[in-house]
């Protein structure tokens, strides 16, 4: 599956995107986050505080119990800041 880190999470993760093949059993957003956190200090930093992490699976907002599978595009990003302040 393809993982994207956007905006400040890209800065924290140290990468914009990567292809990953998580082990069997990693089939929800929550499980994927737990696994990704073990993949390096950048990943752990980017996903440390889930209060400020939003997730989209195949370009739709998703919650921790949403399913993920091979071929999905999973994006992690901070709360959005568009528009005028």
């Amino acid at each position: 599956m393809r993982i994207l880190y956007l905006a400040s999470l890209r800065t924290k993760a140290g990468t914009a995107s990567e292809e990953v093949n998580p082990p069997p059993g990693i089939d929800t957003v929550g499980a994927l986050i737990d696994w990704l956190r073990t993949q390096g200090p950048g990943h752990a930093a980017a996903l440390a505080d889930l209060a400020v992490v939003r997730v989209a699976v195949n370009q739709d907002y998703a919650k921790p119990d949403a399913t993920v599978c091979a071929g999905d595009e999973i994006a992690f990003f901070p709360p959005v800041t568009g528009g005028a302040r």
């Binding site: 905006a7 907002y61 990003f77 901070p78 959005v80 800041t81 568009g82």
Partner: peptide, 9 residues
């Protein structure tokens, strides 16, 4: 759009 659309400044 300020809380949903994926834009970042």
């Amino acid at each position: 759009l300020k809380t949903k659309a994926p834009f970042w400044k």
